[in-house]
Amino acid sequence: MLTDTDIQIIQYLQGDIPLESRPFAQLAEKLGISEAEVVERIQWMQERGLIRRLAAVLRHREAGFQVNAMVAWNVDHARADEVGRYFALDPQVSHCYWRQVPEEFGYNLFTMVHARSQQELKERIEKLSKCQDVKDYIVLESLQEYKKVSMQYF
């Protein structure tokens, strides 16, 4: 069960933590506990899988990964795990999901593929297609980004 303290820690961590030598000092003071206790609580939530990790989140484009596409593949249900696990191994694939999709859509395995150029993206997708012999796929390029934010849970 999450305590009020845990929820306040998550509220703090879902934003941008202060860039200073002791980034949990302000939070500890606000919560009236020690920094060591804050750190312990974060570790506890990480062990339970609530927090995956603390990390910097980058902006893809500014970090040099200029292009990306959502690629949706039409894969036979029987081969889902085999193909999904193979695609997941690719360092340029950031996300890979098997999805329940509308019947008329049909493409059920979803990957996000990142590259430094359109050419590299195209080659990478063709390589994935060839390696797993999945010929039916669509490349859903993003034409406009309307929103991209981190979820505010509490």
Binding site: I10, L13, Q14, G15, D16, I17, L19, E20, S21, I42, R48, G49, L50, I51, R52, R53, L54, A55, A56, V57, L58, R59, E62, A63, S150, M151, Y153
Partner: peptide
């Protein structure tokens, strides 16, 4: 190091530094 990270934030390369939550584990 802190100065260099501040620079990477100012340049817009780092969006934020914080927790990566697991929405499913949080019950969402």
């Amino acid at each position: 190091l802190l100065q260099r990270i501040q620079h990477l934030k100012d340049e817009g390369i780092i969006r934020r530094i914080g927790g990566i939550m697991d929405s499913r584990s949080l019950g969402f």
